[in-house]
């Protein structure tokens, strides 16, 4: 049987396509590449690469250990490169602010009951459940694509990440 090679991207090996304009502006397509974005981001920076009203998809460079975070809604983390470990905690006293969207960072280590851990590699999707605390670690630089809602820590810098001409 003929062998096919499936091409995935990574932090160290990606090739960007692009918008070939006929009668339009390239800005209308908000075109970027998540590996390009993550390669230029600080660890755990939540850079929006897609936005639809209040909803966003964030590209996150996972490197080292993140802060503990909590959101009042579900989030979903898809590993696009590398390997991460996700710790989940059922908090005793910390609660998510239902009036806020997106996740918020917590100071220090929250107390609570351990729910479990997930070790996820490229292509693995994990639920970050609403009203639970999570912390992510990565020994080597990795890339997470996060399905969430825009929050105070969402970084928007479209002009510097997107094709403009």
């Amino acid at each position: 049987m003929k062998e096919y090679k499936t091409v995935f991207g990574s932090l160290t090996n990606f090739t960007k396509g692009g918008v070939e304009v006929i009668n339009d502006s390239p800005q209308n397509y908000v075109f970027s590449n998540i590996f390009d974005v993550a390669s230029r981001a600080k660890p755990w920076e939540k850079v929006a690469v897609a936005k639809n009203m209040e909803y966003v998809i964030e590209a996150i460079r996972a490197e080292g250990v993140s802060q503990w975070r909590i959101a009042s809604h579900d989030e979903f983390a898809l590993v696009m490169d590398g390997q991460v470990t996700i710790e989940l905690l059922d908090p005793d006293s910390v609660t998510a602010d239902v009036a806020r969207t997106g996740s918020m960072a917590l100071d220090g280590e929250p107390s609570g009951k351990k729910m479990g851990t997930i070790v996820a590699r490229r292509g693995h999707m994990s639920l970050l459940p609403a009203n639970r605390c999570y912390r992510i670690s990565a020994s080597d630089p990795s890339v997470i694509l996060l399905q969430t809602i825009q929050g105070p820590d969402t970084v928007e810098r479209w002009a510097s990440i997107c094709q403009t001409r």
Binding site: K16, E20, V30, A50
Partner: peptide, 24 residues
């Protein structure tokens, strides 16, 4: 990509692994 109403061409979008693009 073409205009929704008329079908006149507006752009071609080439997407490779990791690329992210909006369709207006």
């Amino acid at each position: 990509v073409a205009d929704r109403e008329t079908g006149r061409p507006r752009a071609n979008v080439v997407m490779k692994a990791g690329d992210c693009a909006a369709m207006p």
